[in-house]
C-alpha cells in the first residue's frame, strides 16, 4: 500500500472510447492525501450524418473518496453535470433544430489501477437523477408539438447515467 504523503496528486484521463465515436471528453482529478478526489470533466461532441448535424458540450464536477488512501484504489463519490446538445436537420432547404439539455446528479463507484511510473486505468459507473429539457427555435407548429411531447417523455424517466473507461497519467 502506498503512503498517502508519497502519492501523486494530479491526473488527466482522456476518454478513449469517446474518441472512437467523435466525442472528446477528458477529466482532471486532484487527489488530496491520496483519499479525497476532486474531478472536473469537460466534454465536446460534433458530428454530421446525412442531413443532420450534431453539437454537444458539457461539464461535470465531482468528488470521490479513494478508500485505500492511494491513487491505486476503488472509490465512491458523486458527480454533478450539465450538458447541452443541439441537432439540426435540413429538410427541403428548411432547418429544424432541437436542443436537449441535461442536469445530472449521479452517485458513482469506480476503480483506478495505478502504477508508480504514472499510468492509470480508470473505470467508473453510476446511475442517478437527470433533469431534461427539450426546446426548438423552429416556428413550425408540428415541430413544436414534437418537442413538447419529447420534453414530457424525457421527464417521465428522470434518470441519468455516468460512466468512464479511460487510460490516464498521474503526476
Amino acid at each position: 500500500m502506498a503512503e498517502a504523503s508519497g502519492e501523486k496528486v494530479h491526473s488527466i484521463n482522456p476518454d478513449l472510447f469517446g474518441l472512437a465515436n467523435g466525442s472528446y471528453r477528458l477529466n482532471y482529478v486532484y487527489l488530496m492525501d491520496g483519499t479525497h478526489g476532486f474531478l472536473i470533466e469537460p466534454s465536446l461532441y460534433m458530428n454530421s450524418s446525412g442531413s443532420e448535424e450534431y453539437t454537444s458540450y458539457g461539464a461535470t464536477v465531482g468528488y470521490r473518496w479513494h478508500w485505500d488512501g492511494a491513487q491505486d484504489s476503488g472509490f465512491l463519490g458523486v458527480n454533478i453535470g450539465y450538458a447541452s446538445g443541439t441537432g439540426i436537420s435540413t429538410q427541403g432547404g428548411e432547418d429544424f433544430d432541437l436542443t436537449v439539455t441535461q442536469f445530472s446528479m449521479v452517485p458513482k463507484i469506480g476503480w483506478r489501477w495505478a502504477w508508480d511510473f504514472g499510468l492509470n486505468i480508470t473505470f467508473r459507473f453510476g446511475i442517478g437523477y437527470g433533469d431534461y429539457g427539450a426546446s426548438t427555435e423552429s416556428d413550425d407548429p408540428l415541430a413544436q408539438e414534437g418537442v413538447e411531447a419529447l420534453d414530457s417523455l424525457l421527464n417521465l424517466l428522470p434518470v441519468a447515467l455516468d460512466g468512464e473507461l479511460s487510460l490516464g497519467w498521474n503526476f
Binding site: N21, G22, S23, Y45, N47, S49, G50, E52, Y54, S56, G85, T86, G87, I88, S89, Q91, F96, D97, L98, V100, A134, T136, D140, L142, A143, E145, G146, V147, A149, L150, L154
Partner: peptide, 30 residues
C-alpha cells in the same frame, strides 16, 4: 413527419455513438 424528425434528432443527441455507427456502417471491413 416533423414530430418524427424531432425524435430522430433527440436520438442523435442522446446516443451520439449510434449516430456515428449509422454513418459509418458501410465502411469496408479490414
Amino acid at each position: 413527419m416533423r414530430r418524427l424528425l424531432m425524435t430522430v434528432l433527440a436520438l442523435g443527441i442522446l446516443t451520439p455513438g449510434l449516430a456515428f455507427a449509422d454513418h459509418h456502417e458501410e465502411a469496408p471491413a479490414a
